[in-house]
Computed example of a mutant assay.
Amino acid sequence: MGELCVRSVLVTGANRGLGLGFVQHFLRMPKPPQWIFATCRDPKGQRAQELQNLASKHPNLVIIALEVANPASIKAAAAKVGEHLGGSGLTLLINNAGMVKSKNLEDETLEDMTETYTTNTTGPLLIGQAFLPLLKKAAQGSPGSGLSCSKAAIVNISSIGGSIASSFGWEQMQVVSYRCSKAALNMLTKCQSLAYKEHGILCIALHPGWVQTELGGSTGYTPPVRVDDSVQGMLKVLSSISEKDSGLLLDWEGKVVPW
């Protein structure tokens, strides 16, 4: 397994759950990133308290306001990150922010489908577009050929719930808008991998497992995977993947999840 050597990383939805877990793990690395950008809707709010505490102790951690459903907010965040980075690029972009509506098929509405798609699919699309110049810059400034997460990468946190081949968890939770949005996110990842390969950017979708987060537990069941284990597993996967994996959906243990 190679070592994940990331000069800079941005994590969306970083004030809780998996996003916060990623930030904590990056801070604990033997060689932590020079810059860790943690984004959330309200950086000064109560729900970002833990993130604020971490930022007060770690000068390399910068909290940035970002609403994934707001194009103006995304552009403003990209500009701020660019200012901090100066002439260097952004190595790793982790699209983690997501939402779920716990509803059965017959209860799904236009509003729910639209809101879920906007957050889970359109948000990562727009964020990828906004940060593309910084990702390109990181890829250009990285030595060696081939693709890797230590060079430049987009990581979309997806779900086995978006797998058309698998009916995982259907009896417990239909969550149709969530499943559809994640299936679309998987296709977006494939499209990004095809479009951004020429720029030296690896693109991957990850299923983090059914994790003990606010989102994971919103169906009333207790998920089996702890945040710490999921994040540790995903970082191990990111350290070992290469060009051949770009465009795939892998789980937190490195196994390919069927489309």
Results as ranks from 00 to 15, higher is better:
residue 92 L to A: 04
residue 193 S to D: 02
residue 18 L to H: 03
residue 3 E to A: 14
residue 75 K to N: 02
residue 95 N to E: 13
residue 40 C to A: 08
residue 17 G to A: 07
residue 160 I to Q: 05
residue 43 P to A: 04
residue 110 L to D: 15
residue 243 E to A: 12
residue 65 A to L: 04
residue 245 D to L: 01
residue 206 L to Q: 05
residue 12 T to V: 09
residue 40 C to N: 09
residue 192 Q to H: 12
residue 223 P to K: 07
residue 243 E to K: 05
residue 33 P to G: 00
residue 150 S to V: 06
residue 109 T to F: 09
residue 128 G to S: 11
residue 1 M to A: 11
residue 71 P to N: 02
residue 90 L to S: 10
residue 136 K to H: 05
residue 148 S to M: 06
residue 167 S to L: 09
residue 43 P to I: 11
residue 121 T to M: 03
residue 231 V to W: 11
residue 118 T to C: 12
residue 252 W to F: 14
residue 134 L to E: 04
residue 246 S to C: 12
residue 57 K to W: 11
residue 124 P to K: 05
residue 150 S to Q: 08
residue 120 N to M: 09
residue 103 K to Y: 05
residue 13 G to E: 10
residue 153 A to R: 01
residue 46 Q to L: 10
residue 176 V to D: 06
residue 136 K to P: 10
residue 80 K to H: 12
residue 165 A to E: 13
residue 147 L to C: 00
residue 79 A to Q: 10
residue 40 C to M: 15
residue 11 V to K: 00
residue 23 V to G: 13
residue 135 L to N: 02
residue 139 A to T: 00
residue 14 A to F: 09
residue 9 V to I: 08
residue 52 Q to S: 06
residue 147 L to T: 01
residue 154 I to S: 01
residue 32 P to F: 08
residue 85 L to F: 00
residue 219 T to M: 10
residue 13 G to M: 05
residue 215 L to S: 01
residue 13 G to P: 02
residue 32 P to E: 06
residue 2 G to V: 14
residue 150 S to H: 09
residue 134 L to D: 00
residue 6 V to F: 11
residue 50 E to A: 08
residue 94 I to E: 02
residue 121 T to Q: 02
residue 180 C to R: 12
